[in-house]
Design a protein around this nucleic acid. Structure first.
Lengths: 360, 360
DNA sequence: CTGAAAGCGCTTACAG
DNA sequence: CTGAAAGCGCTTACAG
């Protein structure tokens, strides 16, 4: 009753394992195996409830039909939805996906990548941490199918799909400026990661364009490693000590949720006392009262694109670097109304800059 | 430059592959391989950037160090958090996890289970759909390590970890009754799944206990398959056509989010015009205004327990059925204040039942 | 202390 | 039309 193999089927059908293998792989007709033998083999296989051992197949053929996905944290809204899409799409092509969380940790990411490598994934989809650059380049050099998601390295030849992060924050600040806000804080991550940098650049450039002075005190950087609780505390004291800001931009889901909690704790009325924009949409931002204006990422498109790029490599259809940059989508909701300034000044961007702020 | 194997290391070190295998598995000392040979082999392996082929190892040893996880939908809050815990814990023991979404679909779940089976997982953790019963029993019969999560089959000898679902809804209704509500609706799934049934039982029993009549019109069952949008519409018309209800209980995250959206659309004031309790906690319920009273599941504990049960089977430490039932936690928030009835009746449960409702 | 050989379950030229 | 044999990259008795 133990594990049935093609050997068992061969014996029971009275043919060789070669024939069984051919038939089971659907090449019976092509190889002109007789109808009766094909039927016999199929029947016996079904009867014995045969399951091909993918390990053995892979060892022989070099294909595992398994893809490895490494993200920061699978429970994060963005990544779990990305994983869903990737899995759905992969399934269509007969691939299963193995996922790992890097926890944004150098050691952990090295470990999980190593273990995926040992398990011979057919391809790798990775949201890399900064420390992974050497490994990423090594993968490219070894010509392993690989696509980076959410982030990438400017110096690396690895393919990637990412968001136009710059545009995301640029559009946010532009929207805030148009609504009459001029004391726009940004809460972002303390990270060298390209997407974080670009979000910050978009913020600064948009301020300049709208003639709003850049105020270093309005910038808060939270380390990735902080727990949500710790982030809440930090953001709370940041907002409290900058009582004059009239708008705040959270550059990720992971910052926006704690951010809103901070504002709730401080009893700052969102949309009235302070305008809020968050990166990444989610249920809470949509359903909150007031609902939150967001920069939404086209998560499904990101996942689909990345998977396509990856499978094109796996199937050797496209091996050169492909860079896919998708556009974010500003969804205006209730948290960013036209500003009703105490001075009842016209909500005109040009007019707002006048009052030069002195460093505190 | 292609794939380095132990053969390459053997050649370069001038020893046999047997010796290489022994050393690489850390049994060099035990097998009394000379220090110098060990060092030589290790050096060569490092130099060649050797990676053991897990496929080959597995084929030989029968262990893949991979666990399969099948859930409804990995992007769902409950399951993505469960996945995170499972992955974290598995990693501690050297296992990687492969996840699949069954999408609550008979065909899809059969497919994903089949492909995991072919890939020879060391163990299976499954949130089974009703249709999976035969496959589940087959797994048990074949003595494959298996643990069910979130749901189980009363007739099946498979181990499981689940929530005391009955208590979850029972406590909810009790809380509502104590707060003075007596027209308590329930929005649940249209499903035979045990956990759904139990939640419904808890609701009915609690009503009886608090002498609140059970009103069939107050029950709304939404099919699993409905999209969130469709659920919103259904719940909206349900609430609209039962204007007299004073409280509503959503028996899952997947119902609570659309449910709150419905109430928002209807401009029904949560906590004032209608009390709300949801199953499963999440960011939105916690941060909403008013915040939502919930029955929270100890997701981490569920994941940890399930993984332990599974690994105990994998390592043959405990092979008999183990049933783990964890307790839910009622977190009272702002959506279920003491009822201020128009009649200013005492918030006394016994007194409330008086006014007999006529079927609409 | 170390190595030759068998075998895990498959596929794939090659031969007839 | 079908089969014998080699081999994928490992581990593991067994022998010396």
């Amino acid at each position: 009753m133990k594990k049935v193999s093609i050997k068992d089927i061969a014996k029971k059908s009275g043919v060789s394992i070669t024939t069984v293998s051919i038939v089971l792989n659907g090449n019976g007709a092509e190889r002109k195996i007789s109808e009766s033998v094909i039927k016999k083999i199929m029947d016996v296989a079904a009867e014995l409830n045969y399951r091909p051992n993918q390990q053995a197949k892979s060892l022989r053929t070099g294909k595992t039909y398994t893809l490895g996905l490494i993200v920061d944290d699978i429970s994060n809204f963005f990544f779990s939805h990305l994983a869903k899409t990737v899995e759905e799409e992969a399934d269509k092509f007969g691939y299963t996906v193995m996922f790992c969380s890097s926890e944004n940790d150098e050691g952990k990411s090295r470990n999980v990548l190593g273990s995926l490598l040992n398990k011979q994934m057919d391809g790798y989809m990775i949201a890399p941490t900064a420390s992974m650059l050497p490994e990423i380049n090594q993968l490219v050099q070894e010509k392993k199918p690989l696509v980076l998601v959410d982030r990438f390295f400017q110096t690396s030849p690895a393919s990637y799909v990412t968001l136009d992060n710059y545009k995301g924050t640029f559009d946010s600040v532009t929207h805030l400026a148009k609504q009459g806000y001029s004391k726009i804080a940004i809460v972002t991550n303390d990270s060298e990661q390209i997407q974080i940098q670009e979000r910050f650049e978009g913020y600064k450039t948009a301020l300049r364009k709208h003639k709003i002075p850049f105020v270093p005190e309005y910038v808060k950087k939270i380390p990735f490693k902080y727990s949500a609780q710790k982030a809440v505390k930090e953001i709370e004291s940041f907002i409290a000590s900058n009582a004059d800001i009239d708008a705040v931009l959270f550059t990720s889901n992971n910052l926006g949720i704690p951010g809103l909690e901070s504002l709730k704790n401080l009893k700052k009325k969102v949309g009235e006392e302070i305008a809020v924009i968050c990166f990444d949409d989610n249920d809470h931002f949509r359903l909150a009262s007031p609902s939150i204006t967001v920069i939404s990422q086209p998560i499904r498109a990101i996942g689909k694109n990345a998977l396509k790029i990856l499978l094109d490599q796996v199937e050797k259809k496209e091996l050169s670097q492909v860079r896919s940059v998708l556009q974010p989508n500003l969804i205006v909701r209730e948290s960013t109304p036209v500003k009703v300034a105490p001075e009842v000044k016209q909500a005109d961007t040009a007019g707002v800059k006048s009052k030069k702020r002195t460093a505190k």
